[in-house]
Amino acid sequence: MSVAGVEVVRKPAGPPVVPTGTVDEKGRPVTIACATCHATKPANPDARVGRPLVMFHQGLGGQHGNLSCASCHNPADGYASLRLADGKGVPYTDVMTLCAQCHGPQYRDYQHGAHGGMTGHWDLTKGGRARNNCVDCHAPHAPKYPTVFPAFGPNDRFQTGGGHE
């Protein structure tokens, strides 16, 4: 399990692939890399959400500030990587570097163990620790933490309602 002294940050999968909706002869879904299409079809640089698009990506709704697709997705290598604000590419697995550009305070808190869930040891000399990365909890295209239904509440005798209007 966890190894002493080691803090493991979960990493997202590599570059995304797009399902084509078909399967190959072995039943595996056929997917294609971004560049397959984008080599010939230039992206709309103004696009902010997927919905208005006519081919692919229509399901990508949500809201992430005023960012456009190209703010984060790197056209330079056929969208196989992410793009930092200075134009440099960064692999998908290092997505946190990208997020940190805008979300400095959160990234700082994260680095100090004060943001993002973790499991394992507080005392790293006794064992390791596993941590989430940004996109484990925040969907990149709709990063606001979703509303959830809470786990069961107290069931004390004689406690009726909240006690409050």
Partner: peptide
């Protein structure tokens, strides 16, 4: 925690709101 592990409530927190230590 006396074995060096994090408390159960901290591990369960999905947002990382909890910080524990020495």
């Amino acid at each position: 925690t006396r074995e060096g592990r994090l408390p159960a409530c901290l591990e369960a927190c999905p947002t990382g709101a909890r910080v524990f230590g020495n």
